[in-house]
């Protein structure tokens, strides 16, 4: 339950941050997630899924008027099947957030050197 709540929080932060600032907020939110959940082995997953959810929500809002038509227009421009655009967008957000969270968590949880 706690992890689910964190995922929703990450999604909300990602969506609001992207709306107010820019795409680079995604790894920043991911890094903060890694910092906050440094003891949770699922921190990077929470960050990745949350970021994808956040961008998914924004996409849904952006595309709410005419999703099919818009994606069909964009598809040929990007030389990509329309549905794949959505998946690539979500995967990109997930990659940025999850890797940032994992990196921060790894840096903070370096194991102590073992005695020879």
């Amino acid at each position: 339950m706690k992890r689910f709540a964190w995922t929703l929080l990450v999604a909300a932060l990602t969506a609001v941050g992207t709306w107010a600032l820019d795409w680079w907020i995604v790894p920043v939110v991911g890094a903060l997630t890694g910092l906050a959940l440094r003891t949770d082995r699922f921190a990077s997953m929470i960050a990745g899924v949350g970021a994808a959810l956040g961008w998914g929500g924004l996409l849904g809002f952006t595309l709410s008027r005419a999703a099919g038509a818009l994606l069909a227009t964009i598809g040929p421009v990007l030389r990509m099947a329309p549905d794949r655009i959505v998946w690539v967008t979500l995967a990109f957000a997930a990659l940025l957030a999850a890797s940032a969270a994992a990196l921060v968590r790894a840096l903070l949880t370096r194991p102590a050197p073992t005695a020879p």
């Binding site: 992207t18 820019d22 795409w23 924004l58 996409l59 952006t62 818009l70 227009t73 990007l78």
Partner: peptide, 19 residues
């Protein structure tokens, strides 16, 4: 660059939505 391109608020999809 994929960042500004895929950004759902300011990126390519937003340009499409206001086209």
């Amino acid at each position: 660059a994929l960042g500004p391109l895929l950004d759902p608020v300011h990126g390519i999809l937003a340009s499409a939505a206001t086209a």
